[in-house]
Nucleic acid binder design. Structure first.
Length: 802
DNA sequence: TTTAGGG
DNA sequence: CCCTAAA
């Protein structure tokens, strides 16, 4: 019965075929990209690219951010990147929506997209003269093209905001071309920036540029979650949109809170890199040492920064121009709000504004400038968007929205992250509409202190949105995890959780899965690259082996044609006999067991303790479980040495105690290489008596135990020693004593004592007094675990050699 | 809810 | 750790 249970458990440990399909749903990466861009990147990316003034002769057309002064990133006068240009003040002539015939929000849609702003000096890669608009063309929004990427289907392109500004070759064509580049600014682009120089120039859309018209826009809008037709009632439409919005629009609310709490934003991040062009190198080489001196300069090029989600609402009937203006307005507003610059060096935030760059590790000779990050952070005293909003017209335009609708909306979705309640003033329609546009913008700032109500809700929301605390796994936990995975395999994280992390509430099965993932990664990288609390190499080896082992399981389960799989009786589901199908297994490192090996199981015990019987049972059990198994016994009377021993044992020859001891030992040494071969070939060996017997018996005869152990040193150490424990008296009762000279009770007692001194961690004491079935079951349990352990890469060790 | 994968 | 598609 129990053995049956064991078998069942055993087979259960392998992933069922039913699970296979899941493994087959790897996403194609290109698909991911598209999805990401289409659905997730609803941010307006404001890309301000600044080129540095590398050489004096190119200074006029390049901007440089140089020598930070006090507040992080400082800009040379010739390139007042930050504030000035970005302030809405530079867009005073804006009067968006004038003349645009916007219908009441009956058919409004929300689009989101990206705005890409390119500073003129950045097009140094040539070809675009107009980029050289010159310095009068401030690197502001009106200095470059603004591209509204309303993917997936279409694009609206906005030229420079100011008509005075020339952005000729940056016209629709180029702007559209940039669309294809938008993906280069994907949100998680932290590492993907290198090599990105000037998308405009380097990559252009091969497509012709359809004219941007209403139809295009409509398509864009339709591609969003705008479902309601114009036939819907206004209220319904609104509602539809927002409800839907909340449910399935891939807004990452949490992110914004992250920004707030971490003060670092992935979404609007300024990236800078040290100029690494050859010219730069040569230039730097000259001054050489002086660079390290006090007036050495660090040259940075801020490649881009972006602005998170920006929602614009506009009737389908609005003109493209108004849309452009609207976006422009929103961007300006956004940037006018108090933001400050955060700085990260090599992933660490630098808070101390008084440190010098050099102290911070930002020096021209620093090779880590790659990891220099600037980020736009909401300023601490976040100005109130509504009040500081300089563009009332945007709001007014939307003020047609009916208050009642809005009310409904907000009641329905009181805690919609997009609309912090504090931002809303339901008193006036105008304010309502304001909220619509600016609520989204508000996300850039820390949540406004709730003014009226839903204080609790907000807090709650913030609570739930908060990123969980980081709790590094301890080595103990890792060990538990590894052990559980070795047993259960990957892909059963729920079970892993329950078996090993039952009461660790903070470890979800997803966490465990993730931890395993990182463990596998950790194990693959060099120790120098590892961080955090070091995990013992031994554990990592086990991770590697288990990973290799189980992924192989999955592969084979997957590859195995279903009928064939079913044809295999569960018991035959053997993971050791699969070497034929084995693919090159990268994870089986050479240092840890190269491939699944057999286990060396030694059965010891006094005579008549049932060793032979149990060995035979165990062997048939393992074989029926599909494990190649051989049953050996020592002494092996087949060999020449074995013959001598055999003669001695049957009292046909007299030999010195030491001699016979060495003969026994030699007998084992004779078989050592074959034993190793078998084990490494995947065969499990059950050995009836081994060195322990030899030492215990000889010691019992009076030889020093150390002397006895000496010749055994270097033999293969058993993976498991099953000691069938029985008292000498009971053993004697079992009869049969007397045939061979050692079979006397008192002697057996001595032997038993010496056995005890030989016990080590590999021993498993099994009460041989139990019924045969009980013993059998116990043994099976132990052996099965051990066999699997060995298959997972437990390395062979040597006996008594430390 | 779990699993599997990508970020 | 987070997020999400699938199952």
């Amino acid at each position: 019965m129990v053995s049956h249970k064991c078998v069942e458990e055993f087979s259960l440990q392998f992933p069922a075929n039913a699970r296979a399909p899941r493994s087959a749903r790897k996403k194609r990466s290109f698909k991911k990209e598209e999805i990401t861009e289409n659905d997730k990147t609803c941010a307006i990316d404001l890309l301000a690219t600044v080129a540095e003034n590398l050489l004096s002769e190119t200074g006029s057309s390049h901007m440089s951010i140089d020598k930070p002064v006090e507040d992080h990133c400082l800009v040379k006068e010739e390139f007042p990147v930050e504030d000035k240009p970005l302030k809405p003040a530079t867009l005073p002539e804006f009067n968006p929506y004038q003349g645009s015939s916007m219908s009441p929000c009956g058919f409004s849609s929300v689009i989101s997209g990206k705005v890409e702003i390119e500073a003129e000096g950045f097009s140094h890669s040539g070809g675009i003269d107009s980029c050289q608009a010159g310095q009068d063309l401030k690197p502001s929004v009106d200095g470059g093209a603004v591209v509204l990427d309303a993917r997936p289907n279409g694009v609206g392109s906005l030229g420079g905001s100011s008509s005075r500004t020339k952005v000729p070759s940056m016209g629709a064509g180029v702007s559209l071309g940039a669309l294809d580049d938008v993906h280069m600014f994907s949100r998680d682009d932290d590492e993907n920036f290198s090599g990105y120089i000037c998308p405009r120039v380097t990559k252009k859309s091969p497509r012709s540029v359809p004219r941007v018209g209403d139809r295009r826009i409509r398509k864009i809008l339709a591609s969003r979650h705008w479902k309601g037709g114009s036939r819907h009632s206004e209220a319904k439409s609104w509602r539809n949109y927002y409800l839907h919005h909340q449910r399935s629009y891939p807004i990452k609310k949490r992110k914004y809170f992250d920004h707030i709490s971490d003060s670092v934003s992935d979404d609007y991040r300024l990236r800078s890199k040290m100029q690494r062009g050859s010219r730069a190198v040569s230039t730097m080489k000259g001054p050489g040492a002086s660079f390290v001196s006090s007036d050495s300069h660090v040259r940075l090029r801020i490649k881009s920064f972006r602005v998170p989600e920006l929602f614009v609402e506009i009737p389908e009937t609005a003109t493209v121009g108004s849309l452009k203006r609207m976006v422009m307005e929103a961007v300006s507003t956004l940037l006018s709000d108090g933001h400050r610059i955060g700085l990260m060096v090599q992933g660490k935030k630098v808070r101390d504004d008084n440190k010098t760059l050099h102290q911070t590790g930002i020096s021209q000779d620093n090779t880590h400038l790659d990891s220099l990050d600037f980020s736009l952070e909401p300023s601490s005293e976040a100005p109130h968007l509504l009040s500081s909003n300089p563009s009332g017209h945007v709001c007014e335009e939307l003020s047609m929205c009916r208050t009642s609708d809005m009310d409904t909306l907000f009641k329905t979705e009181p805690d919609l992250a997009l609309f912090p309640s504090g931002s809303f003033d339901k008193e006036t329609a105008a304010d309502d509409s304001k909220a619509l546009v600016h609520a989204a913008l508000t996300e850039l700032s820390p949540p406004q202190p709730p003014r009226h109500k839903s204080n609790k809700q907000q807090q709650q929301q913030q609570q739930t949105a908060q990123r969980r605390m980081r709790r590094p796994f301890s080595v103990t936990e890792v060990e538990a995890l590894v052990q559980a995975v070795e047993k259960l395999g990957t892909g059963r994280w729920r079970d892993v959780k329950h078996s090993a992390f039952e009461d660790a509430d903070h470890r979800t099965y997803v966490d465990l899965k993730d931890k395993w993932k990182t463990l596998v990664h950790t194990a693959k990288i060099s120790p120098q690259q590892r961080r955090g609390e070091p995990v013992p190499q031994e554990l990592l080896n086990r991770v590697l082996n288990a990973h290799g082992y189980w992924s192989q399981q999955h592969m084979e389960t997957l590859a195995l044609p279903k009928p064939e799989a079913l044809a295999l009786p569960p018991r035959s589901f053997n993971y050791l006999s699969r070497s034929s199908v084995r693919m090159e297994n990268l994870t089986f490192s050479s240092e840890a067991g190269a491939k699944p090996r057999g286990a060396l199981i030694v059965v010891e015990g006094l005579d008549r303790s049932g060793k032979s019987t149990q060995c035979a049972k165990l062997r048939s059990f393992l074989e029926s479980s599909g494990h190649p198994t051989e049953l050996w016994r020592f002494p092996d009377r087949e060999t020449s040495v074995g013959q001598m021993i055999s003669a001695y044992l049957s009292n046909k020859s007299q030999l010195d105690d030491r001699t016979i001891h060495l003969l026994f030992s030699a007998n084992r040494w004779e078989k050592r290489s074959l034993m190793e071969e078998k084990l490494k070939g995947g065969t499990t060996l059950i050995v009836d008596r081994y060195s322990y017997s030899g030492v215990a018996f000889s010691s019992a005869k009076g030889l020093g135990i150390e002397w006895c152990k000496a010749p055994e040193v270097g033999l293969l150490a058993p993976d498991s020693v099953l000691y069938l424990d029985i008292s000498p008296e009971r053993a004697a009762e079992r009869g049969g004593y007397g045939d061979e000279r050692y079979e006397r009770v008192d002697f057996q007692k001595k032997v038993s004592e010496f056995y005890q001194t030989l016990r080590d961690s590999s021993w498993k004491i099994i009460d041989a007094g139990d019924s045969m079935e009980e013993v059998e079951k116990k043994i099976q349990q132990v052996v099965l675990d051990k066999v699997k352990e060995c298959a997972l890469g437990k390395s062979l060790s040597l006996l008594w050699s430390s």
